[in-house]
Simulated scan of single mutants.
Amino acid sequence: MDYRYPIGQFTHEGEVTLAQRQQWIQDIADLPERAREAVEGLDEEQLSLPYRDGGWMLKQVIHHMADSHMNSVIRFKLALTEDTPAIRPYFEERWAELSDSKDLEIEFSLQLLDALHRRWVALLSSFSNDDYAKKFYSPSSNKTMRLDHCLGLYAWHGKHHVAQITSLRDRLGI
């Protein structure tokens, strides 16, 4: 198994159906609880374990999800209110090395994920088909991305990081 991608990488071909969007919105809604369950009962020493050799500590993974999903919500809002805006990339690996990602209690990011995802789901649930077709441009990948595809990517992103945590717990029996 590739511990970097315990559930594989995100893929989706073709049109995004209404049923697929609804499932992805549910995945977004479920993430805060899944993240909390993934780290339940872990002590500070265990939260400081990397999910793989050379990987982030479990606490960094939790803080990263909050950072990444905050950026994603902003990108969605930019695409809704501007005509194919260019988004601002960020260096997630550098953010993960900041003191709030390495030292802060994970409860703050778990609470943030809960509140952020409630707002995000409310926003996503209000979209029309035309809204899901809106796009933004990513200079870091040199690609224009539709919001319906990004919805799938972030639904996967949350499950991906939760699986990094749970796969380490399974391997270590913790």
Rank of each mutant, 00 (worst) to 15 (best):
Q60W: 10
Q60I: 08
I62G: 09
I62K: 09
H63L: 07
H63T: 08
H63R: 01
H63Y: 06
H63W: 01
H63V: 09
H64C: 05
H64L: 02
H64R: 07
M65P: 00
M65E: 04
M65A: 03
A66P: 04
A66E: 05
D67C: 06
S68E: 04
S68L: 02
S68H: 04
S68N: 05
H69P: 03
H69G: 03
H69D: 00
H69S: 06
H69E: 01
M70G: 15
M70T: 15
M70R: 15
M70D: 15
N71V: 05
N71W: 06
N71Q: 00
N71M: 01
N71C: 02
S72P: 07
V73S: 11
I74Q: 11
F76R: 10
F76S: 12
F76E: 10
K77P: 00
K77W: 02
K77L: 03
L78H: 05
L78A: 06
A79W: 05
A79I: 12
A79K: 10
A79Y: 09
L80A: 14
T81F: 03
T81I: 08
E82F: 13
D83Q: 12
D83A: 14
D83M: 12
T84N: 07
T84W: 01
P85N: 12
A86M: 14
A86Q: 15
A86W: 13
A86C: 14
A86I: 13
A86G: 15
I87K: 14
R88Y: 04
R88Q: 04
R88E: 10
P89C: 13
P89N: 07
Y90H: 06
Y90C: 07
F91C: 00
F91P: 01
E93A: 00
E93D: 11
R94F: 05
R94C: 02
W95L: 04
W95T: 00
A96G: 05
A96E: 00
A96L: 01
E97L: 03
L98V: 06
L98E: 11
S99E: 15
S99Q: 11
S99T: 11
S99P: 14
D100V: 13
D100H: 07
S101E: 03
S101I: 00
S101K: 02
S101G: 07
K102S: 03
D103R: 06
D103F: 07
D103E: 13
D103Y: 07
L104R: 09
L104H: 14
L104P: 06
E105N: 14
E105Q: 15
E105T: 14
E107V: 10
E107A: 15
